[in-house]
Write a protein that binds this DNA or RNA. Structure first.
Lengths: 253, 253
DNA sequence: AACATTCATTCCACGATGTGGAATAGATAC
DNA sequence: GTATCTATTCCACATCGTGGAATGAATGTT
């Protein structure tokens, strides 16, 4: 087999399925409808193949073809997404509860939805003083620990593309607003395997997050968050190890 | 080729892609993790095939395999949602505007998200008196015209499964709360090709909806809604025809 | 604890299925 | 009207996925 420069296929996977997912993800990336030729560019697949796979996806409503023969994601994708959120939330709950037990702070599970971070499950801290973030809330990726983890887990070029679209709006005085500086922060997250949010999203709130899934295939992030004075930096080291253990258990393998 | 009893494949589609989508939809349907054997039951596919396709989907994060080797939808599916909603909303807007022009009432585009109906786009009526429903709002399928259209567009068994999960809570005195009665209403919607909501969701609000997409592959619903006394039944006939025309234009082909 | 049963996973020879280059039709720009 | 895109169709080929059967792992039963 010759090696494909972009879009090489993982062992033991079905070619046409893999390629269809490539197409869906390419479409998700673009914010406007995309023609076949451009998808050929983006995925490196032959024209005929792109066209045929799109037909399959179109028939099932996962992509839409508009009057100008350009394609975008379709309604069926929406249906799947919601079901996926529910089942993720359900299976995460016991793991989040374990983290709350260990730390006394609020635990969250977050995933990327388009360019936003969205919290899909939460187990709140037993403390009366607990912090923010309802389930379903969308937050920008650059000012949160979970966002950093999720961005660090994707190819750098893609992460930068997300940040270019969302921008790095200041949420607090601590928010990182410089792209280069943020890229350095991502490097740090990659090597240490976890991320912190030092009151960058909400004044007085500190947050620590770890990735779920193999490096390079990060699908979600687990976080603990609490008031900055109670949830101090000194406790971080031990907790991160525990969080990583729970993340592995959740992702299993 | 022999005919497959359940899950026959549309012409011009790629078998393994089609089957993968069957699996994803089967998983979306179930609310708890599902094993390979049960998926064989649900889809009629051979074991080896189910297993292999699940591997592909798992590697990409579209399904998760838990410790007991049962599968559920994964985080990657969530990522698609946002982009899909946005692109649906964008391409719907001109069509909705056309309906507002024709009717003077508020036009909406709604899709099914899991078991809920969610409004993804809206163009409001120019009248100062206009009714409810913001974009993003989740409503139950049984008390809305859009919900009826979406339920009528799926296999009856599946629609009933949704209703069993959501229940038929009364929203107003007019809400249909009996499952058999509602099934009869769905029969009507199927044959006439549109649905009405006669103050079943909100007192004083009448609503008419038509399906988007081929019968049996309904992906969304277009609706017009307005105050019951202004948006009277007499005008319905002509408007429905216009709405169906717009729905075809939106779905194109 | 040994057995029976159910389920997930691996294997592999076969050929149906998807592939992709090249030709055609269609759209858009010039 | 011509040129230049781009989308779509076609088809001979062989790759790729297929699925039945075998293996292995796990759970339940006596």
């Amino acid at each position: 087999m010759v090696d494909a420069p972009a879009g090489s296929r993982a062992a033991g996977s079905v070619q046409s399925v893999d390629r269809s997912l490539d197409l869906l993800e390419a479409l998700a990336q673009e914010e406007k409808p995309v023609g076949v030729a451009e998808l050929v560019e983006l995925t490196g697949l032959p024209q005929g193949t792109v066209h045929r796979l799109l037909q399959s996806l179109n028939q099932r409503g996962y992509v839409r073809r508009d009057a100008s023969r350009k394609y975008s994601l379709g309604a069926s994708a929406v249906r799947l997404a919601d079901a996926a959120q529910r089942s993720l939330a359900r299976s995460a709950r016991p793991h989040l509860a374990e983290l709350v037990e260990l730390s006394g702070e609020t635990a969250n599970l977050a995933v990327l939805e388009g360019d936003d971070v969205v919290y899909v499950a939460q187990v709140p801290s037993p403390h009366t003083l607990r912090m923010f973030a309802e389930v379903g809330r969308h937050v920008p990726p650059h000012s949160t620990a979970v966002g950093k983890v999720l961005l660090a887990g994707m190819p750098r070029e893609r992460a930068l593309a997300v940040l270019r679209r969302t921008g790095l709006a200041p949420r607090t005085p601590s928010t990182i607003t410089d792209l280069d500086e943020f890229a350095t922060e991502l490097d740090l997250v990659v090597v240490q395997g976890w991320a912190a949010d030092e009151e960058e999203q909400e004044a007085g709130v500190r947050c620590v997050a770890v990735p779920v899934g193999a490096p390079g295939a990060v699908v979600a992030a687990l976080s603990l968050s609490g008031p900055a004075d109670r949830f101090a930096g000194g406790r971080t080291d031990g907790l991160v190890a525990q969080m990583q253990r729970v993340a592995r258990a959740f992702a299993d393998a």
